[in-house]
């Protein structure tokens, strides 16, 4: 019986390639629909991270790092918090308090709140996904 690498199983690779795009699309759906139904940045970010981790489990850490490099995942983790905090400062620049969405210059305070919440949910999602991917790369170990 020949020794094969754990990353060479055809069924695993084919199923992962099939599933990952849908998992990630669902993650973005959860992030974008957090203001209408259940879900939000946190859950969506976790699903986004988990989808990429599935890819890394199937294809190996080196292949995964080709898709999202060390710098990219670090930057993603920081970028989400930055997006969130920037929305707060933009509100201040528009004449309101920190994170007072109603001060943003849109046609109605409801629209301003809706759009601002979408942006901050996206920020939360990016940070959570980045941190989860980083955690898996750091904690997990390469299979034989």
């Amino acid at each position: 019986m020949s020794e094969r690498s754990a990353y060479e199983h055809v069924i695993k690779r084919a199923m992962t390639k099939l599933l990952v795009p849908f998992i990630q699309l669902f993650a973005f759906y959860v992030i974008a629909h957090g203001d209408i139904g259940p879900g939000g940045g946190f859950q969506g970010g976790v699903i986004l991270g988990a989808g990429f981790i599935l890819y890394v489990i199937t294809f190996g850490m080196n292949e995964g790092r080709k898709r999202i490099s060390r710098i990219t995942s670090d930057l993603l983790s920081a970028a989400g918090v930055l997006v969130y905090a920037t929305v707060g400062f933009v509100c201040m620049a528009a004449g309101g308090h920190y994170l007072e969405y109603a001060a943003l210059p849109f046609s109605s305070p409801q629209l301003a709140g809706h759009l601002a919440i979408f942006v901050i949910e996206l920020g939360v999602g990016i940070t959570v996904a980045g941190v989860m991917i980083t955690l898996y790369f750091l904690i997990g170990r390469e299979l034989k």
Partner: peptide, 8 residues
């Protein structure tokens, strides 16, 4: 707030 989901 302008968002239907109260939790959000």
């Amino acid at each position: 707030v302008g968002v239907p989901n109260v939790v959000t």
